[in-house]
Amino acid sequence: MKTIGDQQLLKRINRSVLLRLLRARPGLSRARLASESGLTKSTVSGLVRELIEDRWLTESDAAVVDGLGRPSTPLFINDQVRALAGIEIGVETMRVVCVSLLGEVLHSDAQTLHSTQPAAACTQAAAMCAQAWDAIAARGLEITGIGVGVPGAVDDATGIVLFAPNLGWRRLDLLPLLTEAFAAAGLPRVPVQLQNEADVAALGEYEFCDGEGEDPLIFVDCDVGVGAGIVLNDRLFTGAQGMAGEIGHTILQADGPLCSCGRRGCAEAFFGSRMLGSKPGDERRAGQMLGVLLQNLWITFDPRAIVVGGATCVNRPEFLQGAIDTVHRYAEAAGMPPPVVRAARHGLLAPAVGAAALALHDYLRPMHPNTVERREKASPRLLTRRV
Rank of each mutant, 00 (worst) to 15 (best):
C259A: 11
G140I: 05
V64E: 15
V372I: 07
M94D: 13
A138Q: 11
P26F: 04
E207V: 15
P337K: 10
A305F: 00
R329F: 05
R30W: 00
A240W: 05
H328N: 15
D362S: 05
R304W: 05
Q288N: 11
A157W: 00
K11M: 13
S115A: 11
L217I: 02
A127K: 06
C266I: 03
I247H: 08
I230A: 06
P317I: 07
G227R: 07
N370I: 00
L102H: 08
A31Y: 01
G90W: 03
P317R: 05
R15K: 14
L217P: 05
L113I: 07
R25I: 09
S115T: 06
N196Y: 02
S72T: 02
V91Q: 14
L57N: 12
V150K: 03
V340Y: 07
L33R: 09
P369H: 10
E59C: 05
A63P: 00
G256F: 01
E214S: 10
L383A: 12
N315A: 14
W298F: 12
M94E: 14
R23M: 07
A181P: 03
D210Y: 04
Q131I: 00
L22V: 07
D282V: 06
H107D: 10
R189I: 00
S16Y: 04
V161G: 09
L360V: 05
P351E: 11
E59V: 04
P151L: 12
D173I: 00
I218H: 12
L178R: 13
V340G: 09
F76L: 14
R15H: 13
H328S: 13
H107L: 02
S60N: 08
H249C: 08
V341C: 09
S260E: 15
G239M: 07
R30H: 09
I324S: 11
P369E: 15
E92S: 15
P280L: 06
G225K: 07
E212A: 15
I143P: 01
A356T: 06
D221F: 04
V97H: 05
V105C: 08
A334Q: 09
L68S: 13
E59H: 02
G67C: 04
E92A: 15
P188T: 08
L68D: 15
S379Q: 14
S108I: 01
G262M: 07
K41I: 04
E59F: 02
A355D: 03
D156Q: 13
S273K: 12
V44D: 11
M289L: 10
G277F: 01
G38F: 06
T238Q: 09
R381H: 13
Q195Y: 02
V292P: 03
N196C: 02
Y206N: 03
A126T: 06
S45E: 14
H107W: 10
I230S: 04
F182H: 12
P188E: 12
T123H: 14
L175P: 00
L203D: 07
V91M: 10
G239N: 10
P317T: 06
G186H: 03
V226C: 12
G159R: 10
